[in-house]
Design a protein around this nucleic acid. Structure first.
Lengths: 214, 214
DNA sequence: GTAAAAATCAAACGATCGTTTGATTTTTAT
DNA sequence: ATAAAAATCAAACGATCGTTTGATTTTTAC
């Protein structure tokens, strides 16, 4: 269940290559070369290429969600503040693990995939939707959120917008003339823009009050 | 530039399989078997597997955008009505060509892809963004839209939400207990829900007026 | 220090990949 | 009817795929 340094090195290289070229488009020899190991080490450590991507999903989906959940359950925060925290945490998570979420999006698009990975994704989505529902019904009970909110589609918009932004970031960078920014500066700018945009979207959509934008 | 019936048949089978299993995950023998042709016909007609997917992109990206553009330029419509028409047309286009847009999303996620396809995608995105910008600046000039709108991120939300909804439609169907609907009924329901959701999102975001939801 | 265990390697395995060949059949055009 | 063109086919091509083998080196443990 836990992996040694060499195994983690292989997984991280595989993660990057799978994100770049897809699972089928990446050969074990590609991985071996980039990770500077012998090809047979992949079978030796993981059993197969398929088991390797499963190991990647195991590692990446254990990430502690509890931190966010404790913040969310804090009674000192207003419902809209909690939604804002959720938005920022999702932005941070997706933007901070672009390779892995690139792979996960690909797996979502595949109709035929190993059940183990489908279960991982289904599990994650379940938790995401539950969290969103908890937050929104909490705001509704407090009387500050509208009653007729499709939290399922709000979750879709939250994840869809961020995923789309990541997938088309080169395009976004070009049409907004941001080529002279460093990669890090651009990533931070995207986070800020997305945060502002999504918070505004949610505020106007879920809140009962009609405040002016920004 | 134009293809005969047999070629189109091959392209359509390839489209379905590429969407299901990805480009690298689909072999030319898979395509030949499903299309009930000899393997060599693919090279014979298209030159290579790579040229086949390029042919698919050529066919699918010639679709007449002019119809929408003429509607949009109609002066009898208010700016928000035009935005609504754009939203519905994007929903119809993406939902009605799920296989192709599945492939296109995959291509967007790949950093290494043939320039021909990247150019097709870049071209499409350019036009989409320009259309959105035209609409929004039109509404701003008419004084009914807010001044500080990030039309680039609004486009991202529009396409991102629909793409995410399509990618996770099985999940959406499950958690909303819609398994007893027929496939066609479910697709129509999704279109309606998405239309309502996105129009509401845009109305609240771009419009100067603060009307109640729905 | 030594034996067992783990790690590493080059090489080879059979399978499948995309593509080409060359013969054969079918269609087209006069 | 006949010759040219197009379409179709089984077979084979070399390359690459994921995986295994078996020998060798390195590490571990007492």
């Amino acid at each position: 269940m836990d992996y040694n340094a060499k195994q983690i090195q292989i997984i991280e290289v595989a993660e990057r290559l799978f994100a770049q070229k897809g699972f089928s488009g990446t050969s074990v020899r590609d991985i071996a070369q980039e990770a500077d190991i012998n090809v047979s080490m992949i079978s030796y450590y993981f059993g197969s290429k398929e088991k390797l991507i499963e190991a990647l999903f195991k590692i990446r989906t254990v990430e502690s969600r509890s931190r966010i959940e404790t913040i969310i359950s804090n009674d000192d925060l207003t419902p809209i503040q909690k939604v804002y925290i959720l938005i920022d945490s999702v932005i941070e998570r997706l933007m901070g693990n672009q390779c892995f979420h690139n792979i996960m999006m690909r797996e979502q698009l595949s109709s035929e995939r190993t059940p183990i990975i489908s279960d991982h994704i289904m599990n994650l989505k379940m938790k995401n939707t539950e969290l969103m529902q908890t937050l929104i019904t909490g705001g509704q009970d407090a009387g500050v959120f509208r009653k007729n909110i499709d939290f399922s589609l709000m979750t879709t918009t939250l994840y869809g917008t961020i995923n789309q932004a990541i997938a088309t970031q080169h395009f976004y960078r070009k049409i907004n003339h941001l080529e002279d920014l460093s990669e890090e500066e651009f990533q931070n700018l995207m986070k800020r823009k997305l945060s502002q945009h999504l918070k505004n979207l949610f505020k106007l959509t879920v809140s009962n009050e009609h405040q002016n934008q920004h």
